[in-house]
Design a protein around this nucleic acid. Structure first.
Length: 478
RNA sequence: GGCCUCAUCGUCUAGCGGCUAGGACACCAGGUUCUCAUCCUGGCAACCGGGGUUCGAUUCCCCGUGAGGUCACCA
């Protein structure tokens, strides 16, 4: 058996979104689980569409997600170069070979003439095929005309590793362009030459290429090359509608997710499970489990909608599973500016309280700000509170005063605070919904916060009492 | 339009002739001494339609319907 070799072969025309990354993940999984190689190849044959810097971006994206490749443009490898614009000679040679074999010819028509043929066919309601206009005496190819494949139309039946048995008639076979008039090869030609040259065994790509497979098979025959296993991955659809996820419609850059504090493992887990599962009820797959259990045969044959809420849940799950130490390291750079003066110990305590409600790191400031800065008293927190708004400022003041006295006695361990707060409940005869809400609002000035005793313990005695005092004077003056 | 493909809760999906059609996300309700979250319990919610085949179809076949892909000197 040949060693399994897969590749991710993007064109450097922008960033990578969830849909593009999924193809990379699948190809990576197939290579790694077979102890084969994973190759990155840049398909930069369209100089018009190329976006400067996107090669770096692509590489960064794979690196961040941990999709390591064995060969690529930046690291080289036995089949270098891995950038198609550096391999033009090879396409020319193969093109020449096809000409000599009578399987390629120069296209003598101008684009306008070809377009006219196309419109004629459309007007006659007949499918347009270039080969119907194949010139009887094509000129010698001087490199300035497009070089076309002289196809041999016939029916094909083949196996797709995901879609299963596929077949088409001879009518889909046509004389497509191998090398454009600018000297660059088309995707249709270049990828076949390179996949062969790089000993790629499994071609895993999006469904936009399925319709071309018969043409590729025809070309493989003309080149006397053995076609690889092909696997067609259905598109990922946008959250609403049935349209393919696209940059145009605002699909997010995967690196943006990482920047917002989504964990690479969570992203990989989530994206891999869009259209794949192992048949069990498992939802969370570590990288090792994915490597062990993944198979192309179990990839869904229809497109899947991208639901960010599910990603949010999964990322939160991964965050909760982290040790506090690991999370603390991961979350550096996400603290609110006010936290810069706080000690590491204090920040880690805060993080411990906030961990279970963190869905992604960029939420950290809004969840933790009040631990680091005294927010001004917000009367609305009381006036719009369904229990507290029934009480007068005087009643609230007296209640809070009692709370302050009780809390002052505490050593500010969570246990002792809990004990004293419970005693206070009995003493005042108040419901927790009233008493605890009042204290919580006074000490946080936030609509939501972690548990009261824990929050007070982390805030510490000085800060807690000072905030109670601020609330008391606000109540006194209202 | 031609060709190819696909079709289970709102979403991701399990199912591969016999199940009260299962799980997860989201949502709703209750519980966890306050809020938010976590966690637990419960709930809502699906086999696109019509024909066959079969003792029996979500499952197999056909026809519709719907959706997607493709018909470029883009990939």
């Amino acid at each position: 058996m040949k060693p399994v070799r897969t590749r991710f072969a993007p064109s450097p025309t922008g960033y990578l979104h969830v849909g593009g990354v999924r193809t990379a993940i699948f190809a990576w999984l197939v290579a790694r689980q077979a102890k084969g190689q994973f190759v990155l190849r840049l398909e930069d044959t369209d100089k018009q569409r190329e976006v400067a810097g996107s090669d770096k971006h692509l590489i960064e994206c794979l690196r961040v997600l941990g999709l390591d490749y064995d060969e690529g443009p930046d690291i080289g490898g036995p089949y270098a170069p891995y950038r198609q614009s550096d391999r033009l000679d090879s396409y020319k040679q193969w093109g020449q070979k096809l000409i000599e074999a009578g399987r390629a010819y120069a296209d003598p028509y101008t684009p306008a003439e070809v377009q006219a043929f196309r419109e004629q066919a459309q007007a006659a309601k007949r499918p347009f095929r270039y080969r119907d206009h194949r010139p009887a005496q094509p000129p010698a190819w001087d490199g300035h005309q497009p070089l076309r494949f002289k196809s041999d139309p016939k029916p094909y039946a083949w196996q797709d590793a995901i879609l299963g048995n596929l077949s088409t008639g001879p009518e889909v076979i046509d004389d497509f362009i191998l090398i454009k008039s600018d000297g660059y090869p088309t995707y249709n030609f270049a990828h076949i030459i390179d996949d062969n040259a790089m000993a790629i065994t499994h071609v895993i790509r999006g469904q936009e290429f399925t319709a071309s497979v018969p043409n590729y098979l025809n070309l493989y025959e003309a080149l006397s090359l053995e076609p690889p296993v092909v696997a067609t991955v259905p598109h990922i659809l946008g959250p609403d509608g049935n349209k393919k996820l696209s940059k145009r419609d605002g699909a997010k850059d995967v690196l943006d997710y990482v920047r917002e504090g989504f964990l690479p493992d969570a992203l990989v887990n989530f994206i891999a499970c869009l259209g794949w599962n192992d048949g069990s009820q498992q939802e969370i797959f570590s990288r090792d489990e994915l490597l062990r259990k993944f198979s192309l045969g179990r990839v869904q044959r229809s497109g899947a909608h991208f639901d960010e809420r599910r990603l949010l849940w999964m990322n939160g799950h991964y965050i909760r599973e982290m040790t506090l130490d690991d999370l603390f390291k991961a979350v550096q750079g996400y603290w609110p500016p006010e936290a810069s003066d706080a000690s590491e110990i204090y920040r880690e305590q805060v993080l411990g309280l906030v961990q279970e409600r963190l869905k992604y790191f960029a939420e950290l400031p809004e969840l933790s700000r009040f631990f680091f800065v005294d927010l001004s008293v917000d009367p609305k927190l009381i006036s719009e509170h369904k229990q507290l708004k029934k009480l007068s400022p005087v009643e609230l003041h007296s209640l809070l005063q009692k709370a302050k006295l009780a809390i002052e006695e505490s050593d500010f361990t969570p246990e002792d605070l809990t004990k004293r707060l419970n005693q206070l409940l009995e003493q005042t005869g108040q419901k927790p919904a009233v008493l605890f809400s009042l204290i919580r609002i006074a000490t946080t000035q936030a609509p939501a916060s972690p548990g009261l005793a824990d929050t007070l313990a982390v805030l510490g005695k000085d800060r807690s009492l000072q905030r109670l005092e601020s609330q008391l004077s606000a109540l006194a003056s209202s």
